[in-house]
Simulated scan of single mutants.
Amino acid sequence: MLVHYNQTSDILYYEVLDIPLPELQCLKTLKVAFHHATKDEVVIHSIRLSKNSTISDVITDLKTKVELSNPDAELRLLEVFYHKIYKIFPPHEKIENINDQYWTLRAEEIPEEEKNLTAQDRLIHVYHFMKDPNQNQQIQNFGDPFLLVIREGETAAEVMDRVQKKLRVPNEEFAKWKVAFISMNRPEYLQDIDAVSARFQRRDVYGAWEQYLGLEHTDTTPKRSYAANQQRYNFN
């Protein structure tokens, strides 16, 4: 036990379990970062359920642990990797094969505007980005990605007005932001009068993260406060 890759150690680490090992082996533990609807604080919760449980079971358990904006709020679970949303988990999916070691599992409330979408409405991905001058202006994403409803014919100016209110960005700072339609990592900057929905008509893209609305600005947003096990830690 003390020999690993032909190297010998004189330290043996162990963990004291709170339940018998056979019982623990039948369970799955997921670390879920809960993003509050109106606060910048993120609380990381450990959800431990049977391996046969579903995403719906995770959300039910999480609701007993988090502070909601209202008692009837609905939650969803997202898979986030390198500041992009790669998946919205369906409620019936089993949790047994979900990996939270490399991908971040993020839970959040579903905004009211997303609950009654029409055939003309689109739910798009919105990511923050900036260009790296040292790598031929290659795009680098940062910050917290999010989903946003865009209406048929809605202009870039109208969308950006809603984005500013959603993110609570001061006018002076927001005036420096640019908005672009990004496909395959290539930005196409939008003018105020451009219809955003017209850029999101293709249905044959591999994944939603390949086409998104990009917000170009410097990373001046304050670091979120993270809490785990009800003890707060700040991650820089």
Rank of each mutant, 00 (worst) to 15 (best):
H128R: 11
T155P: 07
Q135D: 14
G153D: 14
D132E: 02
V149G: 10
G153M: 12
K131I: 02
P133T: 01
T155S: 15
V126S: 04
P145L: 01
Q135R: 12
I150H: 10
K131V: 01
Q138T: 07
D144R: 07
R151I: 01
L148N: 00
E152P: 02
Q138P: 01
N141G: 09
F129I: 01
Y127T: 12
F146W: 13
L148W: 07
P145F: 04
H128Y: 11
N141D: 08
T155R: 11
Y127H: 03
N136K: 05
F129G: 00
N136S: 13
I139E: 09
Q137Y: 02
D132I: 06
I139G: 07
K131P: 01
N136A: 04
Q137G: 13
G143N: 07
D132T: 05
N136C: 06
Q140T: 13
Q138L: 07
M130A: 09
N136F: 01
L148S: 01
F146N: 02
N136W: 05
F146Y: 13
L147V: 14
D144N: 13
F146I: 12
I150P: 07
P133Y: 04
F146M: 06
G143H: 06
H128P: 00
Q137W: 05
Q140S: 09
Q137M: 05
M130D: 03
K131W: 00
E152D: 15
G153Y: 11
